[in-house]
Design a protein around this nucleic acid. Structure first.
Length: 497
RNA sequence: GAGCCGUUAGCUCAGUCGGUAGAGCAUCUGACUUUUAAUCAGAGGGUCAACAGUUCGAACCUGUUACGGCUCACCA
């Protein structure tokens, strides 16, 4: 234990000896710091002296400046900060002693009158200080905040206390999710909750986490998607449903992937992709408006306009626009390979035309899509779960939304033909047997549901974490997850406590 | 999975050529009744991530390990 920890424990004991509970009780405040700034920020020093507004706040002491028989300290609550001015002759000797012996990090309640200092800073002149909670450990540097990246993730509370921009970002995350809910609720979607524990992973290609239920004695999977249960609800007549929920994928971790992340999926009966595009645009625009007050945002130094209608372009046209290569004419695999060779696009032997089209898209187009762009008409080969385009069976009813070169939404005209669905599940099951552990087996129960009839449906998936990254202008998913997945640290010894 | 980088006081960071470790904040003592990263005077605080090696001598050089970061690869 270092000197700082010892001193704070001693001070805790001093408080007890003085009859003060160092871990106090209910405290009623009548003002928030930001509210005071809003209310009195413009009022003059003289006017505040005349009017005498007595308020009570509570918060954590963030800085402290002692000056003999007076002291200044900044207190933070969830809204912001305010300076407090404590005078010995005003609060009395005993009360001043408590303030004097308090440490940065301690939590207190302050009652006093609103004033302004000579330099014009809004301040509470304390009449009384109520000690509420002792901090037994020192806070990170008051000026630099917590900079250690690992510690920010492992001890997020310290990051939240000492880095206000981080605190604000997480508040914003919460507001973004509220905005998404508000938008969908306004559009007559019903929010539902479906199981996290699945007897069979499905709805996406990904490796699942497995777990075990003791009483039933069965292995269960943590869900990798929300899809199949939500579509059962479309069969059940709910018509417009959504879920915002955690999904789990047992895959790598990097700046854009965390093993657990938050997905939004929505399904609307009788909609086609045009409707879903409108919905997607609506969600992005509404959320941006709610949290940033504008659809004009800056992401990693790049201006992005979410207010303007998003561009909508077929994948083949986008490739043509960017490279001049035209994949519209029907062509053989050899023709496509020749085009790939000419443009130095690498391909595998077994690839068909659709795979090569996709490779062209990823190589030449994706990173150029800075402004919001819907790419639709994916080749069927890369979209095994989507419904074929009846007018051109080489492509499917699917779109993805790209912004700043990254994918933000993925949508389908949902496959509602149970015969076709069963065949595709069988193909997946076969892949699984051949060793693809991201493919999954036949979900008989789901196929049966489809046999009762699922109306034509438009489905949408949005990675909420990436939406939050976009709207808060950060480039690592860990900066929008309060507690990102980390490898455990070594066990702390007594000395480190 | 590969490559590169990081880990020094509670926090933020220096540390030259290999010679027993420094600053600011924080802490402690004293001064100070409108301070603003308060100031002034003094003091204490270190398993230099861990282990092994090279060396008369290692924070520094070498190796291994742990944790983290970035890039690439993988990835509906």
């Amino acid at each position: 234990m270092n000197d700082q920890l010892r001193v704070r424990r001693q001070k805790m004991q001093e408080l007890r000896d003085e009859g003060i509970d160092p871990f106090g009780h209910r405290f009623e405040r009548d003002a928030m710091t930001q509210g005071l700034h809003d209310k009195y920020g413009e009022t003059t020093k003289e006017q505040l002296e005349e009017e005498e507004h007595v308020v009570t706040i509570a918060g954590r002491m963030m800085t402290k400046r002692g000056k003999g028989k007076v002291g200044f300290a900044d207190f933070a609550d969830r809204d912001g900060r305010i300076q407090v001015y404590v005078r010995k002759d005003q609060v009395g000797e005993e009360n001043y002693h408590i303030f004097k012996r308090s440490d940065i990090g301690d939590i207190m309640g302050i009652t006093g009158s609103v004033m302004k200092t000579d330099t014009g800073e809004l301040t509470i002149r304390a009449n009384h200080v109520t000690f509420l909670t002792k901090a037994l450990r020192p806070l990170p540097d008051k000026y630099h905040g917590l900079q250690n990246v690992e510690q920010k993730y492992r001890q997020r509370y310290l990051d939240l206390i000492s880095n206000r921009e981080s605190f604000d970002r997480f508040m914003k995350r919460s507001h973004i999710i509220s905005a998404v809910r508000e938008y969908l609720d306004q559009h007559e979607f019903t929010e539902v909750e479906t199981p996290v524990l699945h007897t069979q992973a499905g709805g996406a290609s990904a490796r699942p986490f497995t777990t075990h239920h003791n009483a039933l004695n069965i292995d269960l999977y943590l869900r990798i998607a929300l899809e199949l249960h939500l579509k059962r609800l479309i069969v059940g007549g709910m018509e417009r449903v959504y879920e915002i929920g955690r999904v789990f994928r047992n895959e790598g971790i990097d700046t854009r992937h965390n093993p657990e992340f938050t997905m939004l999926e929505t399904y609307a009966a009788y909609w086609d992709l045009t409707d879903v595009m409108d919905e997607t645009e609506g969600i992005f625009r509404f959320a941006a408006q709610k949290v940033n007050g504008s659809g004009q945002i800056t992401y990693q130094g790049q201006s992005i306009d979410l207010d303007k209608p998003f561009k909508r372009i077929h994948m083949v046209d986008a490739i043509k626009e960017q490279t001049g290569v035209d994949f519209w004419p029907k062509m053989s695999v050899a023709d496509a390979q020749k085009l790939a060779d000419e443009h130095h696009v690498e391909y595998q032997e077994w690839w068909t035309v659709g795979h090569i089209i996709n490779a062209f898209f990823e190589t030449f187009v994706e990173e150029t899509l800075t402004q919001p762009t819907f790419i639709y008409g994916h080749p069927i080969e890369i979209s095994p779960l989507a419904k074929k385009d009846p007018k051109d069976p080489r492509f499917v009813g699917r779109f993805e939304l790209f912004i700043h070169g990254g994918e933000y939404a993925n949508a389908f005209t949902e496959l509602n033909d149970p015969i076709d669905q069963r065949e595709r599940f069988e193909a997946q099951a076969k892949e699984r047997e051949e060793g693809n552990d991201e493919a999954h087996g036949i979900d008989e129960d789901y196929v049966e549901a489809l046999e009762y009839g699922m109306p034509p449906t438009g489905g949408l998936g949005i990675g909420i974490d990436r939406l939050v990254m976009l709207l808060t202008d950060v480039d690592s998913i860990r900066d929008v997850l309060l507690f990102p997945t980390m490898r455990p640290e070594k066990t702390l010894t007594d000395d480190e406590l």
